[in-house]
Amino acid sequence: MSAVKMLSYIKRDSPVHHLNGVTKLITFLAWTIVCMLSYDTRVLLAAMVLSIVIFRLAKIHLKEVGFVLAFIFFFLLLNDAAIYVFSPEEGVKIYGTRHLIFQISDRYTLTQEQLFYLFNVTLKYLTVVPIALLFLLTTDPSEFAASLTGIGVPYRISYAVSITLRYIADIQTDFHNISQAQQARGVDLSKKTGLKKRISGISIIAVPLIFSSLDRIDLISNAMDLRGFGKKEKRTWYRARPFQVMDYCVIGSVLFLSIIGLFITFSDGQRFFNPFLG
């Protein structure tokens, strides 16, 4: 059940929830940009600590996102493994030194530089993921749409975003039900089956999901037309919320920290923090 509802808005009373949707969007974007640009371990570590603190502040429990986190973690490790397989000496190239730990074959060596590089890559994702999750889990979709319109995004687009978020949970439930019914017919998605069978199994679940979702879209668009959506150039929002002092403070500090982060990252002329020098 918890797996069904993952990734949709969780209502809580926390300082993070009280922030305006736009504030959270700006924070999320700035955070992502800085962490994606930077390979500076100091910046990334600081960001990670901060993201954990914010996560605690938001009163989201680890078990509510455990499944997603495990899933992401798995792909992260996969990513690390892939980097190693395709470019075992990437770290050596970047940091310019070679501290060999041991050698597997001609091509595959294990160096401190490579480990450090992979550590940084992992760190990057570990800093972005909690913030991305928080953004999804703490932003009331309708209020978010209202805020987006507030900063100049056309309301048709922002409403589309909001409606997508509204139906994520429903489509997840649909997916769950369809997948069970198709498993009963014999679709096997477990690891026991081969890749080819698994892909065809996924299509057997995806096709009905798409078609039942299309039914839903038809219905919603009718319902919206019938109640005058798109009638006027402008639209008001029942749940609109003005910016609070706190929002300005948060945006201010986020921008400030981002600039500092980028400054530290690029101060030595490159994106990498190099502990192997000198």
Partner: peptide
């Protein structure tokens, strides 16, 4: 399916929102 908005209040207000009330 007709429930467009996130909550009851917003859904009832939907037509008014579109009228920019």
């Amino acid at each position: 399916g007709q429930f467009v908005a996130q909550t009851v209040g917003e859904d009832i207000a939907f037509a008014l929102e579109n009228d920019a009330i």
